[in-house]
Write a protein that binds this DNA or RNA. Structure first.
Lengths: 223, 223
DNA sequence: AGCTGACGGAACGGAACGTCTCGTCGACCC
DNA sequence: GGGTCGACGAGACGTTCCGTTCCGTCAGCT
């Protein structure tokens, strides 16, 4: 006669758990998050509604878990380190853009970002599980660049990371202009100008001609 | 015997319109957007539900109009121009931070941003009515700075604007760290390093000592 | 004076919500 | 191997809110 209300994880049905998560990703892709219902997930998964409510607190929580499982979070988020910070950052930002453009990634991410605005609990989990690892990995790479002298010493690396990802998310969320890889390149370009060492006259990275302003990168903008 | 379904704006009851908008802002503040219902707005406004559905297509549309009316959009969004781009940008970003920290602004903005992720129609209106004017004004100010030689010639001003606001929105929406005025200052600082002329050795703005790294601005970050 | 159409109010069917109650079934304990 | 426990699938339940439809009233126009 305890509190009578805490389910026992040891007795949880793994089969049902997976079926629910699978149904959730499928349905988000098919009808979108807004029209997604717990009842539909239960039906698709061949599961009682209560089994969902027993283990998750809300539709958002299910979708978050489903998204984490599907996107294989927990994998290696660390950046490549070629020694060339510009090259590495460009790779990451381009990859981010590519992800954000893919519907299977775009739709749940948008939904979770939106839902996070109204559910602080979900927000924390979403940021910590999905976003933070990427930001942290980028910060780590920047720290390396800082030690190598490619990034100025005084720079606040948290701000530096947001200087890179902020513009991307801004454009993605608000759709003020198309989100392209060229845009990512331009952002990297500008951000590195901000972060680079305070330039003792012309000493900004070996200064190979054409390196600073890559071919088509400039036209990332135009609202 | 026309299509039978287009209401006549000339016969619209202005009193009801205002009552609805007022009720909407009040209720968003009291119960939040998620728990806000059209029925509650109608009741509070002393209005039939149909009167709301006649003039607005969704809860989001009502809240958007209410927010626009309440925030006095359409006012002058143009930036001050003191001739000092850093000073002017710092004023704008600080003001933006202040707004985003005020609940009366924060709550509806979050709700509309979230809702925009699921309603492209609403998204467009929101961005165009609320956001775009500010971005455009900032871009205009940057154009002036560009002509004055405080911003490099080749810079894409659309990207420049997002380099400023992107980090702010990123931190505001995702709550990765506290959104402070010091953070705004740091962002302005870094952004201007990126945008400034390509510095013919030490020529980065007159270089008054302590100007580049304002007192407490550095500690805007730390996740 | 007679129309017209927006109004406040209320009732409606329908969709999901989240809770609750069944009977079943598998895992563990004596 | 019989008994206990609790998660399970199924689905009924009351509730809330949706968006629509009807009604009688009322103000402005012709």
């Amino acid at each position: 006669m305890r509190d009578a209300k805490t389910p026992d994880p040891a007795r949880r049905n793994e089969r049902s758990r997976e079926a629910i998560l699978n149904a959730a990703v499928e349905l988000v892709g098919e009808v979108g998050y807004a029209r997604l219902t717990v009842e539909a997930i239960a039906a698709r998964a061949g599961v009682g509604k209560q089994t969902i409510y027993r283990w998750w607190s809300s539709k958002g929580a299910v979708v978050l878990d489903a998204f984490i499982a599907w996107s294989g979070a927990g994998g290696d988020t660390s950046l490549p380190d070629t020694g060339d910070i510009e090259k590495d950052l460009r790779a990451v930002l381009r990859a981010t853009v590519a992800e954000l453009r893919e519907p299977r990634f775009d739709l749940p991410s948008r939904a979770l970002t939106a839902e996070s605005q109204m559910d602080p609990e979900l927000a924390k989990q979403f940021v910590d599980a999905v976003l933070r690892p990427h930001l942290e990995a980028t910060k780590e790479r920047l720290r390396g660049a800082q030690k190598a002298g490619q990034v100025a010493k005084g720079i606040d690396l948290d701000v530096a990371v947001e200087l890179l990802f902020g513009p991307l998310y801004h454009r993605w969320l608000l759709r003020t202009a198309p989100l392209t890889e060229a845009y990512a390149d331009t952002v990297v370009d500008y951000a590195l100008r901000a972060l680079g060492p305070s330039e003792p006259a012309g000493a900004r990275t070996p200064n190979a001609p054409g390196k600073r302003a890559p071919k088509g990168a400039r036209k990332g903008g135009a609202a």
